[in-house]
Amino acid sequence: MTAYVPFAEPSFGRAEEEAVLRVVRSGWVSTGIEARAFEEEFAGYVGTAHAVALNSCTAALHVALRAYGIGPGDEVIVPTMTFTATAAAVVHAGATPVLADVVPDHLTLDPDQVKSLLTTRTRAIVPVHYGGRMALLGPLREICAAHGLRLIEDAAHTLPARDGADAAGRVGDASAFSFFATKPITTAEGGMLCTDDPRIADEARRWSLHGLSRGAVNRYRPGHPAAYDVDRPGFKYNMSDLAAALGRAQLAGADRLHARRTAIAEVYLRELAGLERLELPPPDTAANRSSWYLFPVRLRAAGAVRREAFRRRLHTLGVGTSVHFEPLHRFSWYRDHAVRAGQTFPVADRIADTLISLPVFPAMDEAAVARVVAAVRRAHDEPDPSRDGTRG
Results as ranks from 00 to 15, higher is better:
Ala35Phe: 10
Ala263Arg: 09
Val305Leu: 12
Val360Met: 12
Arg221Leu: 15
Arg289Asn: 02
Tyr68Lys: 09
Ala363Ser: 15
Asp241Pro: 05
Ala49Leu: 05
Ser332His: 10
Ala226His: 07
His329Glu: 13
Asp196Asn: 11
Ile351Pro: 00
Gly47Thr: 12
Ala176Met: 07
Ala204Asn: 00
Arg300Leu: 11
Met239Ala: 11
Gln113Arg: 11
Gly303Val: 01
Leu269Phe: 09
Tyr334Ile: 04
Thr195Cys: 01
Asp336His: 13
Leu314Arg: 10
His106Thr: 14
Pro233Ala: 12
Ile70Arg: 09
Glu382Val: 04
Ala3Val: 08
Gly27Pro: 02
Leu278Cys: 05
Arg298Leu: 13
Thr186Pro: 05
Ser357Pro: 00
Val347Gly: 07
Tyr293Lys: 00
Leu278Pro: 06
Pro72Thr: 02
Asp284Val: 02
Pro184Arg: 06
Tyr293Thr: 09
Thr119Cys: 05
Thr119Pro: 03
Gly148Ile: 07
Pro383Ile: 02
Leu99Val: 02
Val91Met: 15
Ala161His: 02
Ala67Ile: 01
Leu275Lys: 05
Gly318Asp: 05
His324Ala: 13
Asp110His: 03
Asn218Pro: 00
Met364Phe: 13
Asp353Asn: 14
Arg214Ser: 06
Ile356Lys: 05
Gly131Phe: 03
Glu266Cys: 02
Met1Ala: 10
Thr354Phe: 09
Tyr334Glu: 12
Asn288His: 14
Cys57Phe: 09
Glu366Met: 03
Gly169Tyr: 01
Pro362Tyr: 09
Gln250Tyr: 07
Phe361Arg: 08
Gly342Asp: 01
Glu18Arg: 14
Ala64Phe: 07
Val376Met: 07
Gly223Arg: 01
Tyr268Lys: 03
Leu328Cys: 11
Lys183Phe: 06
Ala165Phe: 06
Tyr228Asn: 04
Ala204Gly: 00
Leu137Trp: 04
Arg330Phe: 14
Arg260Asp: 08
Gly320Trp: 04
Leu136Asn: 10
Leu358Glu: 09
Gly318Val: 06
Pro139Ser: 07
Leu246Phe: 08
Phe310Thr: 06
Gln113Met: 12
Val24Lys: 15
Ile152Ser: 13
Met192His: 01
His50Ala: 13
Glu266Gln: 14
Glu16Phe: 10
Glu142Leu: 05
Arg378Met: 06
Pro225Thr: 12
Ala244Glu: 07
